[in-house]
Design a protein around this nucleic acid. Structure first.
Length: 198
DNA sequence: TACTGGATTCACT
DNA sequence: GTGAATCCAGTAA
């Protein structure tokens, strides 16, 4: 909540990240996205939780299919997929030639809270965007946004004042390698991080 | 063509 | 903690 206090001072200095910023290893980029501001049309928020996907068995990139091809062929684009018959999840592709994407798991609402409440049909700010599908629904992100470049109406901005937060990391065992794999990254103590990670 | 399961969320117990 | 919702992508035949 304390973040909200700082919006006006740094808003003027926000710098839009170019597509080339998103080139690299997904595991390295995922924590760097924390504290960045995501903006889509009438809504914006601070990214507080991300998840890295590469070529491990839990990732769509484990087997490249027409759907997941974007994970291999692009960087700096939105990979939005439909799951569980009712939810969308939004990823950022991070590689070209390699395979990688970063899932946006949770954001802290900044602008457009009323729109988010309308789309979600609930009026508890804390539950609007604290989950990957919740975030998509609140921001109005659907499959129509799949493949769009991170630019224009659907961009990410750097907010230096927010980037120095303490970062938490969850890991899972990489089945194929048999080693610990950094996985979820989140801003410690932030109330909008989904429950599983805090 | 048919079948299976899912990077989730929510209501209910 | 458990199970339902709900439909698309992927796979097998």
């Amino acid at each position: 909540m304390a973040f909200l206090f700082y919006i006006p001072p740094y808003a003027a200095f926000m710098k839009r990240l170019l597509q080339s910023w998103f080139v690299g290893d997904a595991v390295a980029l995922a924590p760097k996205l924390l504290g960045k501001i995501i903006k889509y049309r009438d809504c914006s928020g601070i990214i507080v939780e991300t998840e890295a996907y590469t070529t491990d068995p839990a990732s769509h990139g484990y087997r490249i299919t027409p759907r997941s091809q974007i994970m291999r062929d692009t960087y700096g684009k939105w990979y939005v997929y439909f799951t569980y018959g009712m939810h969308f999840c939004a990823n950022i592709t991070t590689n070209k030639g390699g395979i990688g994407a970063v899932l946006i798991r949770a954001v802290e609402p900044l602008v457009g809270t009323e729109k988010m409440e309308e789309r979600r049909g609930i009026f508890e700010v804390q539950n609007l965007t604290n989950g990957p599908a919740k975030f998509c629904k609140a921001f109005g992100i659907t499959k129509a946004e799949n493949g769009l470049p991170i630019a224009g109406d659907f961009s990410i901005y750097d907010a230096p004042e927010l980037s120095a937060q303490e970062i938490g990391i969850s890991s899972r065992i990489g089945i194929s390698q048999g080693i610990d794999l950094p996985w979820r990254f989140y801003i410690k103590g932030n109330p909008f991080v989904s429950r599983k990670s805090n």
